[in-house]
Design a protein around this nucleic acid. Structure first.
Length: 883
RNA sequence: AGGCACGUAGCUCAGGGGGAGAGCGCUACCCUGACACGGUAGAAGUCCGCGGUUCAAAUCCGCGCGUGCCUACCA
């Protein structure tokens, strides 16, 4: 006998350990079964499990467990990401706390410290994934800094370099002065901020007057090397001079003409700072302008900033503005909103900065990646995300892959100190390929973490070796991910996968929602609105939490999560537990067949509903409609199995006089419960395993069970008949209960009911299932009459065209009964009006499909019959009371 | 500036050309032999607004309003 309520804690731990110990998550390298593989989006080693991880991994686990039950050879490849900047930041903070810093420590010692940190605290998130029930093939766990993956990274780098798809050069990139590294365009978060548009006068070098330029970043003027106007701007065609005197720096800079300049913006005169603005950089190249870098890599003003040297860039802005104002050169200062880039790791304001960096030429890689989605070799689900993918891919720009940090894959490039030859190779070369010199210095930069993540689907499977694992599991079946890393990760995996494997990395990409708080805001530590998934698991249990996530994972909509909702699904898990508790009281052994000759109506009905539910859940999971799958199973378990079947089957289960029916009911109860457990297992793995163990007739783990197929225990007409007869029974029961409720009759009172059923077949059906109705509606008698006298002291309901009378003898309150019936009539009249209007509309009759017209006519007949009967009833009561 | 979602019961959301749905909450009654983490019944919505297409629109189209998000080099 099970406990009265489900207690998740001990159960979860017990079963997870068992599954791992038994190797139930293990993929088989080579196998006859269909292969199904997923690579996990590797969480950062620095990470702790948040709601995004919880949702992402719950969905993957549902798919993996489902496919295993379906008989597939499943590989769920786990691992973590070395998260270059984030991890380096964490360890640096630690050093700072110890009064250390990485420069004092030196590169080698620092890297050692990071590895040590990873050993000590880097796998916290893996254990948290286990609490979630994630059925990853853990012995295969990988890390982007593993030796194997590092070899993959070097291989890719060298090959892309040799193919001319990686180059090095001096360009403007996004620079984070706090992290002291370049960032890719994607790693910059733009935020609209209130700033100012400063109008500054640059006096002509000769003669009077000058040009007024407009800028949002006046401190960059110190590095100006030109002023540009549009070639066709009449205001600036004729000027007294060809150069202006740059204020504060006292340097002449040329006035140039370039059609990049927008005549409508500001004054139509643009200051040009090639070292600190990407557009100015381009203009500078076109006009051979010098680049003067005035802001150093630490965000302070540099040696070329004149008297402002050493000043912080923001302090310098104020100082420059003050100085200009003093000299009467600040013409205007208008409030101005503009997008300011911030580092996605540390939120510092990013500085466009000129530096030597490495880039991937992306266009040639992007084209096949676009084609793969267009041709359907990779399918993006929901499809609307494909557009976002295309938009980005079509406008893609080269990818800056070098980072000026230490933690990461050091770029495999060496420079000869004697002849400056650049050598890119898998291993450190012994001597220079050009001059034979042996003084070679390796590039100190490391690669963007996403560079190694881009290889994840094949590097984790052993590439560049041609492993059996790759042969069996690449391409993977589906990638499950949030849209926030569609560009960062998915697009880049597509490019790399196609380029190096010759085949897309995944057949499907399922893009899921973001988890937000109950007000729809993004969860963030600073807002203090985060819900810790581990805390939720602690309070409500993993199964309830997972079920909640699945039930709310509708495609294309964010999930607003509150604990209240998880509580609701905890009730569901408990309901399942108690249904099993009931079933186990009646089951001593398992069954491999059902005695169809002795099935009662509820037996046949629940088998029909079960088959229907299996189809629904299967279809929904096959199309990543997790919420529908979870919803269909929930509805079936609670509102069909528990609410109706278990109650309706009780008479048969307790009836010792009909052993064959009793046995048949047990067979059905066992079969339906078994299928429910397997059906629910992907969503609620722990409770289903626990019940499975207790259920007689099951062997081993539920993970080795077979996902139910819609069984044709009965033929289709028998199923259909069972559904319609049971529907009639349920309608009758509900009608009686409604009268009981509305007439305030105690649930304990046994009632006597008469149904006037002119149709002999219907009468026979009701008579046949009398016991069920009597039991469910708590009656002491149910009679059917062909016509019969209508009792004046009964409350009436119309069910399926029949008049149903609940005898209330002395207790009936006639006024109340009339009121009740009139309310019912009111509703009916409204419906009937709408239908009659339709039927009086000639164009409806002419143009609507005949089956629709027939349907409406059918409804009309049913409703008007009901209306007639209710009217008669009301009249009769009035007449009776009048006596 | 462009793009993409979304606006349905008090709350959170499914649905999606032919009778408005669920969960939670609310009201009433009930510890009925699995379950009070429960049962039975009930109340509750101009499906954001305005036009259009259609025999028929919550559903399709257009416009507007509102709310999110993403992308973007106008200094």
């Amino acid at each position: 006998m099970l406990d009265k309520g489900y207690e998740p804690h001990s159960v979860e731990q017990k079963w997870y350990e068992y599954w791992e110990k038994e190797g139930l998550f293990a993929a088989v390298e080579a196998d006859d079964r269909p292969a199904f593989s997923i690579v996990i989006p590797p969480p950062n080693v620095t990470g702790v499990l948040h709601m995004g991880h919880a949702l992402n991994n719950t969905l993957q686990d549902i798919l993996c467990r489902y496919r295993r039950l379906k008989g597939d050879n499943v590989l769920w490849m786990p691992g973590t990401d070395h998260a270059g900047i984030a991890t380096q930041n964490v360890v640096e903070r630690q050093l700072t706390a110890q009064g250390q810093d990485r420069h004092k420590l030196g590169r080698e010692k620092f890297i050692e410290a990071v590895w040590q940190w990873r050993t000590e605290s880097g796998s916290a998130i893996i254990n948290q994934l286990k609490r979630l029930g994630a059925s990853c093939d853990w012995p295969r766990e990988r890390f982007t800094m593993d030796e194997g993956l590092s070899r993959a990274v070097r291989t890719v780098f060298v090959r892309l370099y040799e193919e001319g798809l990686i180059y090095r050069g001096l360009y403007i990139t996004n620079w984070c002065p706090r992290c002291r590294t370049a960032l890719s365009d994607l790693e910059v978060e733009h935020e609209e901020l209130d700033g100012h548009l400063y109008h500054i006068r640059y006096p002509f070098s000769q003669g009077k007057g000058g040009l007024v330029v407009a800028t949002t970043r006046p401190e960059t003027m110190l590095g100006d090397t030109a002023v540009a106007t549009h070639p066709e701007d009449p205001r600036y065609r004729q000027l007294p001079a060809e150069s202006v005197r740059l204020p504060l720096m006292d340097r002449d800079i040329p006035i140039i003409r370039d059609d990049y300049v927008d005549r409508a913006f500001g004054t139509g005169a643009l200051k040009v700072t090639p070292a600190h603005d990407p557009n100015d950089f381009e203009i500078g190249r076109r006009h051979n302008l010098p680049s003067i870098k005035v802001i150093d890599d630490d965000g302070r003003m540099g040696a070329d900033a004149g008297r402002f040297q050493g000043m912080d860039r923001f302090a310098c802005r104020d100082a420059v503005v003050a100085a200009l104002r003093e000299q009467g050169l600040l013409v205007r200062m208008d409030p101005h909103k503009h997008g300011v880039g911030h580092c996605y790791r540390c939120k510092s304001v990013v500085e466009p900065n000129l530096s030597q960096q490495w880039f991937v030429k992306v266009k040639p890689l992007a084209e096949p990646a676009i084609a793969a989605v267009q041709s359907g070799r990779t399918r993006i689900v929901p499809e609307s995300w494909a557009k976002t993918y295309y938009d980005w891919m079509f406008n893609i720009k080269d990818w800056c892959i070098s980072r000026q940090i230490w933690w990461g894959h050091q770029i495999p490039a060496w420079t000869c100190q004697s002849c400056s030859e650049l050598i890119v190779a898998m291993q450190a070369p012994a001597q220079c390929t050009q001059c034979g010199g042996s003084d070679l210095v390796q590039e100190t930069d490391v690669l963007d973490t996403w560079f190694s993540s881009a290889l994840w689907p094949f590097s984790t499977m052993g590439w560049p070796d041609r492993t059996p694992l790759l042969k069996t599991f690449y391409p993977t079946a589906v990638l499950v991910t949030g849209f926030d890393i569609l560009f960062f990760w998915v697009a880049r995996m597509m490019m790399m996968g196609i380029h190096f494997m010759g085949e897309v990395p995944f057949k499907d990409v399922y893009v899921h929602a973001l988890v937000r708080d109950e007000e729809g805001k993004k969860m963030s530590k600073s807002k203090g609105n985060v819900i810790d998934p581990l805390n939720v698991i602690e309070v409500y249990g993993t199964d309830a939490f997972r079920y909640t996530l699945a039930a709310f994972a509708a495609q294309g909509r964010d999930i607003k999560l509150s604990e209240k909702r998880v509580e609701g699904y905890r009730h569901f898990i408990n309901k399942l537990w108690n249904a099993a508790r009931f079933a186990l009281m009646h089951l001593d052994n398992g069954y491999d067949r059902i005695d169809t000759a002795h099935l009662t109506l509820p037996d046949r009905w629940i088998l029909a509903r079960l088959a229907h539910t299996i189809r629904q859940v299967t279809a929904a999971l096959d199309e990543y409609r997790f919420n529908e799958a979870a919803g269909a199973a929930y509805q079936f378990v609670w509102h069909e199995f528990c609410d109706w079947y278990v109650e309706a089957a009780k008479p048969a289960l307790y009836d010792e006089n009909h052993p064959q029916e009793r046995e048949a009911a047990r067979q059905v109860l066992w079969t339906v419960l078994r299928d429910i457990l397997v059906l629910l297992h992907p969503f609620a793995p722990f409770v289903t395993e626990e019940i499975w163990e207790k259920l007689p007739g099951t062997q081993g783990s539920i993970m080795r069970a077979t996902f139910p197929e819609p069984q044709n225990t009965l033929d289709a007409p028998a199923f259909a008949e069972a559904e319609s007869e049971m529907t009639l029974v349920m309608e009758i029961v509900t009608a009686i209960r409604t009268i009981r409720g509305e007439m305030n009759i105690s649930p304990a009172a046994k009632l006597s009911v008469t149904i006037q059923a002119p149709d002999a077949a219907v009468r026979a059906a009701i008579d046949a299932h009398q016991a069920i109705i009597v039991n469910l509606a708590r009656l002491d008698g149910l009679k059917t009459d062909e016509h019969g006298e209508r009792s004046p002291t009964a409350a009436t309901a119309i069910v399926a065209g029949m008049s149903l009378q609940v005898e209330l003898k002395g207790v009936i309150d006639f006024a109340q009964e009339v009121q009740r019936l009139e309310k019912e009539l009111g509703k009916l009249n409204k419906d009937l009006n709408a239908i009659n209007n339709k039927l009086h509309n000639d164009s409806f009759l002419a143009k609507a499909p005949p089956e629709v017209v027939a349907e409406v006519r059918g409804k009309q007949a049913v409703l008007s019959e009901k209306q007639g009967k209710l009217n008669v009833t009301v009249e009769r009561i009035r007449a009776f009371v009048g006596h």
